[in-house]
Structures are given as structure tokens and as C-alpha cells.
């Protein structure tokens, strides 16, 4: 039952998706591999496409995977089940969040969760770099990718360039280098 699998996978991801979209990618990757929904090449394209489009990269990726595996209904189920956990949390216990957030136990928990999320995000970057062969081989192709990567990183960090600009430039650079 593909719809149930989609629902449960993305609901579970939704429950643990602390730290924004990029930290969700390894969770999504894990589910894809478990169920064999996509090849690594396809997932690589999904990440590039999700990062390119507006909205949260995690939910965009969920929508892509849902559509790819089970059409329009699949896309709806994947994205709805991913936002369901925070929706339920806010509706049911939203009023008490402020007190909850200031409690020492919560602060202590996040003292440990936040660095774990940093590990997850870096892992997600390394895994993606491996899958597009940016860091495994020394060739013209990987040098070009490294160049685009460094250019974007510097532009983001020192010039605070908007991500959509860097994505457009890198798409152009990709076409020039690899077409």
C-alpha cells in the first residue's frame, strides 16, 4: 500500500525534522533507500530541483518523491503528512509552548540536539557532494563543480547574495561547463 507507506514515512520525518530543510534531507534519503522509491541519481536531481524552487527544500523534496512514486495523490499525501506533526503540535499544545520553551529541560535538550543537527546538515552536504561526484574524482568535471561550489559559498558568505541569484548563475555555469 504505497499511500500508507508514503504517509507513515513522511509523518515520521515530519516528527523529527528539527533544524530546517537541509537537516531533513538525510532522513528523506534513508526512507527512499529503505523502500527503494528512487535511484540515487533521481534523488540527486530532486535535491537540486527542490533547492532551486521556492519554498522549503524538505517539503519540496517530499512533494517530488510523492509525485514520482504515486502521482498527484502521492504528492499531496507526502507533503501533508510532513506538515501534520507541527500542525498537530501547534493546535493541541500551542498555548503552552512559551513556558515549555523556557523550561530548563528543554534548554538542556537543545544544547544536545543543535550540534547533532549541525552534524546532520554537514553529512547531508557531504553525501550530496559524493553523489554528484564533486569530491571523489579529480577531473575537469569535478573541478568545475568545486569552482561553482566555492563561488557560491563566497558569494553567500561575503556578499550576502540571494540564493536564487546564485542558483541562476550556477545553472548557467553548469550549461557552459557540461553541455
Amino acid at each position: 500500500m504505497i499511500y500508507l507507506q508514503l504517509f507513515w514515512s513522511f509523518f515520521l520525518i515530519g516528527c523529527f525534522s528539527f533544524g530546517g530543510g537541509y537537516a531533513m534531507l538525510p532522513l528523506i534519503d534513508r526512507q527512499i533507500t529503505n523502500y527503494g522509491w528512487m535511484t540515487t541519481k533521481d534523488f540527486t536531481d530532486v535535491i537540486a530541483l527542490s533547492g532551486m524552487l521556492p519554498g522549503s527544500i524538505g517539503i519540496n523534496a517530499a512533494t517530488f518523491i510523492g509525485y514520482k512514486t504515486a502521482g498527484l495523490l502521492g504528492a499531496l499525501i507526502a507533503s501533508i503528512s510532513m506538515v501534520l506533526p507541527p500542525l498537530l503540535l501547534i493546535i493541541l499544545i500551542g498555548k503552552w509552548f512559551k513556558r515549555f520553551q523556557e523550561s530548563p529541560t528543554t534548554i538542556q535538550a537543545f544544547y544536545g540536539i543543535k550540534p547533532a543537527i549541525v552534524g546532520l546538515i554537514i553529512y547531508s552536504a557531504i553525501k550530496f557532494a559524493l553523489s554528484i561526484e564533486m569530491i571523489t574524482s579529480i577531473s575537469w568535471a569535478s573541478t568545475g563543480l568545486l569552482f561553482i561550489f566555492l563561488f557560491t559559498l563566497l558569494a553567500l558568505h561575503y556578499r550576502k547574495v540571494s540564493p536564487i541569484i546564485t542558483i541562476l548563475i550556477s545553472a548557467l555555469a553548469g550549461i557552459i561547463f557540461y553541455y
Binding site: 564533486m134 540564493p163 546564485t166 542558483i167 545553472a171 548557467l172 553548469g174 550549461i175
Partner: peptide
């Protein structure tokens, strides 16, 4: 080709995050 280029810059976005 375009997606490959975008992929490289998405890695930069992820690391920056």
C-alpha cells in the same frame, strides 16, 4: 548540465546553513 551546476551551488547553500 544545468542541474549539475545547481547541485554544486546547493551544496554551498547546505554548508552555509
Amino acid at each position: 548540465a544545468a542541474l549539475l551546476g545547481i547541485g554544486a551551488s546547493v551544496i554551498a547553500l547546505i554548508l552555509h546553513a
